[in-house]
Amino acid sequence: MIFTCQPGFTDLLAGELSTHGFSPVEQGAGWVRTEGGPKTELPDLCFPQMALFDPVEIAADSVNALAAKITEQFLASAKTERFEGEWPFLFEEAAEMDGLGRRVKGVEKMVQENLKKRMSRVARLAVADKPRGVAQLRGLYVFFVDFKRAYVSREAFFGGQRRMADDEQAPSRSYLKIEEAYIVLGREPGFEETVADLGAAPGGWSYSASKRGAKIVAVDNGPLKGGAYNNYKIEHRMEDAFTFRPAPDQVFDWMFCDLVEEPHHVMENLIQPWLERGWCRRFVIILKFGRVDPLALLRDVRSPDSVFSRCATNIRVRHLYHDREEFTIVGELK
């Protein structure tokens, strides 16, 4: 398989894959090729953004030759298939290689033209975009590792990560993370649902929920800014996130938490009481791993004894497109 990730985190991707039985045999900026691994469905993985199944290596010197080989590979594998609706047609390239993107665009355009000549109806149904959300889909996926070599796959898994559009009223870039996290969970706050945003300042996550009509309690001693400031949907509590407690018998529909704190301290002293006592129904939590071993922290989160395993379901742990040295955990209480 080939797994892709955010550039700069390739070693962590390779390390995570190794813990799940995959054997990394080659890697570059933002990608790892593996052998072995589970024979059934993929485990829930944090760092991969896309995983290509059974990739076939294609090598050639020119754009024309690469496009011809990719076209023939697709036609040979698709000759017995029925295409009844839109299907993914995705070309991507390894990061940090100047000029490779232009070459890939040239190959992609030529493959499109080839398919229009050979399978015009099928070509019209091709969609050059990733699916929105977590999905495993059949299509045409081409990943270039350099100017002369690409891998072609017909089946891919997507972890839900994707680049999000900014909002000029959002008080911080963290707004992008919560917008992306909704896609990974497959749900977002609804109208009149309640949200406890712990460590809210400057208010990017609270602002995101307010746009959907939710009612937010933003807990932070710091000020709210931008679209979160004086927002009638947001009640700002000047309190410590670690000591804030819901009112008796109050259960929030959502709990948000993005704190610049040691992750085990956050899990033990904030997340654990919220989940064990059922103070929320769903959660989006970020844990910072800049000063701890990220893979050891992942093991702790996924441990059968962790508060997440004991109290929650539908858990997904992801290194988001907009995450830095952190990962995001989404889920629901059992």
Rank of each mutant, 00 (worst) to 15 (best):
His20Asp: 06
Gly160Lys: 07
Asp167Ile: 11
Met238Gln: 13
Pro48Leu: 06
Glu235Tyr: 01
Phe158Glu: 03
Val111Gln: 07
Asp323Lys: 02
Leu275Tyr: 11
Val217Leu: 08
Leu297Tyr: 04
Val127Glu: 13
Asn231Ser: 05
Cys280Phe: 06
Ser174Trp: 03
Glu57Lys: 15
Arg149Phe: 05
Arg324Cys: 08
Pro7Asn: 03
Ile271Phe: 11
Thr328Val: 05
Ile329Val: 14
Thr71Asp: 07
Glu72Asn: 15
Leu52Trp: 03
Leu52Cys: 06
Arg282Phe: 09
Gln27His: 15
Asp253Ala: 08
Glu188Phe: 09
Val127His: 01
Pro223Ile: 05
Pro171Met: 12
Arg291Met: 13
Lys211Met: 08
Lys215Leu: 14
Asp253Asn: 11
Val330Asp: 00
Ala29Glu: 15
Val301Leu: 10
Val330Gly: 01
Glu268Ile: 02
Phe22Asn: 03
Pro273Leu: 12
Glu262Gly: 00
Val127Gln: 14
Ser306Arg: 02
Ile2Ser: 02
Lys105Thr: 14
Glu168Gln: 12
Ala150Ser: 13
Ala95Arg: 11
Val127Asn: 08
Gly278Ala: 10
Ala214Pro: 01
Ile178Ala: 04
Glu332Tyr: 01
Met119Ser: 04
Gly15Cys: 13
Val127Phe: 03
Lys215Asn: 12
Arg124Pro: 04
Pro48Ile: 04
His264Asn: 12
Ser153Gln: 00
Ser172Trp: 02
Phe22Gly: 04
Glu72Met: 13
Leu52Tyr: 10
Leu297Ile: 09
Val284Asp: 04
Ala78Ile: 10
Gly133Trp: 05
Val219Met: 06
Arg187Ala: 15
Glu326Gly: 02
Lys116Phe: 10
Asp240Phe: 10
Phe308Glu: 03
Glu193Gln: 12
Gly133His: 02
Glu26Gln: 15
Trp31Asn: 09
Ala218Thr: 07
Val292Glu: 00
Asp98Ser: 13
Gly290Trp: 01
Phe157Leu: 10
Pro248Asn: 09
Gly30Ile: 05
Cys5Tyr: 00
Pro171Tyr: 04
Arg154Ser: 11
Glu332Trp: 00
Ile285Pro: 01
Thr328Glu: 01
Phe91Met: 06
Ala165Trp: 08
Glu72His: 14
Trp31Leu: 14
Pro246Thr: 05
Phe22Arg: 02
Val25Glu: 10
Ala95Glu: 13
Arg310Tyr: 02
Leu66Phe: 07
Arg118Gln: 11
Thr80Phe: 12
Ile329Gln: 00
Val292Leu: 00
Phe244Asn: 06
Ala128Glu: 10
Asn231Val: 12
Glu155Tyr: 00
Gly85Val: 04
Cys5Thr: 14
Asp166His: 08
Lys105Trp: 09
Glu26Pro: 01
Thr194Gln: 11
Glu113Asp: 14
Ala123Ser: 03
Pro304Cys: 11
Glu72Asp: 15
